[in-house]
Nucleic acid binder design. Structure first.
Lengths: 194, 194, 194, 194
DNA sequence: TATGAATGAGGTTTCATTCAT
DNA sequence: AATGAATGAAACCTCATTCAT
């Protein structure tokens, strides 16, 4: 009934994780039976508990798979042009985050009840603030005034959108808005606001 | 085991809703048995289903209870001072939202799987953007340049923080950050950024 | 949702019985909640148990309502013509039984588990055999040979059809068959078979 | 409390079906908890739903088990002697039906509410009419006059008795009656009635 | 006389987990 | 290493029945 995960998509263990990711994101952790995960992964029911003794272990393994996005600052920064730098950063982040969209959405949902998940999420937000700050400071060649505030604002906006993407509809409109916002912030910095 | 809701806190129906709100927010909808809701509300198990035939009906009733925050624009706007106006607005919103903090956090979590919840949340975000815009334009006495962007940025920041409040720790620090951010945005507008 | 029994159709007590009859016949005794009976009768839930303390009391009252069909032998018998006599008898029985079709069907179903119902049903079968015998003997002016057997055969056929009417489809075809059968039996008697 | 089904009586699945058959026949489908079926079969409660996801699936499986009685016409027909042929047929049917007496009684009860059951029952009735017709025509060496009527009458009588056996008492008396009836019908045919 | 809120026992069903193979 | 039959705790929900009004 459910479209199975590509049967040749890696090892059984891998397929189980992929199935869990999709189903957890779609219906939530508690509402997803391990039996359905097995079914969707195309493996026997026993195998799920063979690899992941308890159900929460699946979440743990999923967190491990969160890509540690390493942004190459140098590749993004356009010296003297904050707007352009942020545009390139956001584009790169979008790409990275899109690759793990369902995963991060699901983690978002389960952050409350699973501390390991919550920590991973906070860590990611902090990394996000940091990279934005680095890029802004880099583009402004050392001027740090106002940068912290802008980083937080932008990180909030990116995170908010990312976490809500699932519900929202028009993606290109969202991207246009995002561009307007970061240009606004960049212009503000250029105007000396802090 | 669980601390029961104040037994004199209104009708049985009311106590059931209060208990559901707390428990859903704490552990999630699916992880909360109706029996525990009854226990916490200090009512017999059957009464929960007497008032709310199916479990999701509890969510529905909870959404009904979301306060329709009506912000009196005139009471907030300080003509000519966007920063001050936004400060007062955010303070008022904080107060309003704090009253329904657990409720909105829980709705946030369940938005994916319960369309009624999702719609209520989107509606609330839209109202948030609108009131911010009104206040900014009011304070700037009609100047609308840049206002939409600022409204979206600020609404994102408010929503993000509000939805994550539960995980985060230091509330006063969060408030200070928020103040810095809205001042930044106000200054940017004053500097003519758009 | 359910089409209510005619609200002016007699007293509340009467309407409750009518609703119970329909619902019991349609879905069975155990599968029919008293609340649905109340709903269909257009009376408050408490009233059902006010009139009929326990649910099985409804069945008891329904059995009471079984019409004690009194067949006037003289009005049916055509002296010397068994076939015609039986035709008239069956027609009369059909009419009588049709009036209580749903009721007797439901009793049929519940006969196993409710002794009072079972007894009422056996009693009715015996009365059926008796009246057939009387009519046949009356028509044959005293000749009793073979009559008992014919009475049993015909009573079985009538009962079988009547109890199955609910499932079967074509009623007029059933009637035609029945006519053929009783003519066969009458002819057999005329031919001296016993 | 309930006498358990013979614990060595086949597989667990088999024992569950046997227990369900007995209990459904005794108290009806709706009045029999699956928990009691498990108890009687001597298996844990969960196993019932492991094999039969929903309760009605038990009925479905029971219908599957209805023996498709294949009557060997040649072994029954006594050429030229309709009475004797029918006697042998009825004896054989009695034996066959006795083996599934409780089962068919229960199906009879539940025919209204479970279409699959109803269909199985109608099918069985049609097979019954057919085999009677074949036997009568076979014994009369091709003479088909009156045979359809006799077949229907006899099938009704057999079915009626079979379905009511549960309530009735004296089985040997019932058999004697049946013999008298089929002799009557056979004689009628011999006498040229149609 | 009539009502409907309230109760709690008990029904069906789901599911994580175990374990013999 | 892999399997799937088996288990039983516990979830959701229904409903006859009671009772204060």
């Amino acid at each position: 009934m459910t479209t199975p995960v590509d049967p040749d998509g890696g090892s059984a263990r891998e397929r189980i994780l992929a199935a869990a990711e999709e189903l957890f994101a779609a219906r939530g952790f508690d509402a997803t039976p391990t039996s359905r995960i097995a079914e969707r992964a195309g493996v026997p029911k026993g195998l799920v508990h063979y690899y992941f003794t308890r159900k929460p272990d699946l979440l743990g393994a999923l967190v491990e798979r969160l890509p540690r996005e390493r942004v190459d600052r140098a590749a993004v920064i356009v010296p003297g042009d904050v707007t352009q730098s942020l545009c390139r950063l956001v584009a790169m982040l979008d790409e990275m985050l899109a690759a793990s969209a369902t995963l991060s959405h699901l983690l978002w949902r389960e952050a409350d009840t699973h501390p390991a998940v919550r920590d991973a999420l906070h860590e990611r937000f902090d990394r996000l603030v940091e990279v934005i700050r680095d890029v802004v400071v880099g583009a402004r060649e050392g001027d740090e005034r106002g940068v912290e505030t802008v980083a937080l604002l932008l990180a909030s906006a990116v995170s908010y959108r990312h976490s809500v993407t699932r519900h929202a509809g028009d993606e290109s409109a969202a991207r246009a808005e995002m561009t307007r916002e970061l240009r606004f912030l960049a212009d503000a910095l250029d105007a000396g606001v802090s």
